[in-house]
């Protein structure tokens, strides 16, 4: 059986409780159960995580790189959108 017959899955791992799931890579599996079990063996063998999400890659929709100019360049000169101009009290540590 060749890999190409099995759909591709994107794997997300939460490294510890309270943190977000982060994309770690992808793998081939015949269904969601197998994808999660394989992700356990491939991506958590060095204690990388406590939770796994598997999403079939076809369900991920991405922006088109060709749109980059119109999508992102207009933000280049709008520094006033950053909140860095506010004076924050010293007691605030995590802004």
């Amino acid at each position: 059986m060749s890999n190409s017959e099995w759909p591709l899955w994107e794997i997300f791992i939460r490294s510890k409780a309270g943190l977000d799931h982060k994309h770690v890579g992808s793998l081939h599996a015949s269904d969601a159960t197998m994808a999660i079990e394989m992700a356990r063996d491939v991506y958590t063998r060095r204690q990388e995580g406590v939770s796994i999400w598997a999403v079939e890659s076809v369900h991920i929709h991405a922006s088109n790189p060709d749109d980059a100019e119109s999508f992102y360049d207009p933000m280049n000169d709008k520094v006033y959108r950053h909140p860095t101009f506010y004076d924050l009290p010293d007691q605030l540590k995590h802004m």
Binding site: E37, M38, D41
Partner: peptide, 12 residues
């Protein structure tokens, strides 16, 4: 192993 993921699982 028949595929990479199973190969790793068996080694684990």
């Amino acid at each position: 192993g028949p595929i990479l993921e199973v190969d790793m699982a068996l080694s684990n």
